[in-house]
Design a protein around this nucleic acid. Structure first.
Length: 213
DNA sequence: AAAGGGATTGCCT
DNA sequence: GGCAATCCCTTTT
């Protein structure tokens, strides 16, 4: 028999570690989004690590701005950013204060409130597509910039929390290069997912860039 | 299954 | 001004 998911919030010190330790440890954890209509819960199946100011692929690379301020704050908080004119994505801030590292939550399985998620994800054909990809995940859970900076360790009245859930054994975790980042960083073990999980987003190589005229 | 282009706003140089 | 940690639809294999 499998153990029931642990409903205890992950403690602050869970996040106060190097991002490459935190990222794979987030797989299988439970993200809870509390909406006026009811809770939506998601089991995390895919994540990507961003190593702060030293990482060319990170939003923190060019230093602190109003947009990325949450990444420079204390660990265990959300960093939500707006991208491509229409989408939001959720990051979990980790590492000691000032490191500005975080984990992009890329995909997951909706375990509670699929009916609520589906209202915001009309185009999803199957339940596995509800949160397959970072912007889809944010849409399914009704996450936008108003949740930027949310304390993920807070109690059951918080709009967004991260519970211990069920950690994923190392032999069920796959590792690969990040999407969209070339050069040296491409070889680092930055992207983690639960092997063979149907909710993991398909790998896409870096899109070839078109020349401007 | 894979690949390409359009959508659409905010941010940084 | 140009691009961005993307998605979705269409076209092609």
């Amino acid at each position: 028999m499998s153990a029931r998911p642990d409903r205890t919030p992950l403690p602050r010190d869970f996040y106060d570690r190097p991002v490459l330790a935190v990222a794979p440890d987030l797989l299988g954890r439970t993200l809870v989004r509390r909406t006026p209509d009811g809770p939506i819960e998601l089991r995390i199946t895919e994540v990507e690590a961003y190593e702060g100011e030293a990482d060319p692929g990170s939003h923190a690379y060019r230093g602190r701005t109003a947009r990325n301020a949450s990444m420079f704050g204390p660990p265990g908080h959300a960093y939500v950013y707006f991208i491509y004119g229409m989408w939001f994505s959720l990051n979990v801030v980790c590492g000691p204060p000032g490191h500005a590292s975080g984990v992009l939550v890329r995909a997951g399985e909706i375990t509670v409130g699929a009916d609520l998620a589906r209202k915001r994800r009309i185009s999803a054909r199957r339940d596995a597509e509800l949160a397959k990809g970072p912007a889809r995940l944010a849409a399914a859970l009704d996450i936008d910039r108003s949740l930027d900076g949310t304390d993920l360790c807070a109690g059951p009245t918080a709009p967004l929390s991260l519970l211990a859930g069920t950690p994923t054994p190392a032999d069920q975790v796959s590792v690969g290069p990040r999407t969209g980042v070339g050069g040296d960083g491409a070889h680092h073990p930055y992207r983690y997912w639960i092997t063979h999980d149907p909710t993991v987003s398909p790998y896409r190589a870096h899109a070839p860039r078109r020349r401007s005229t």
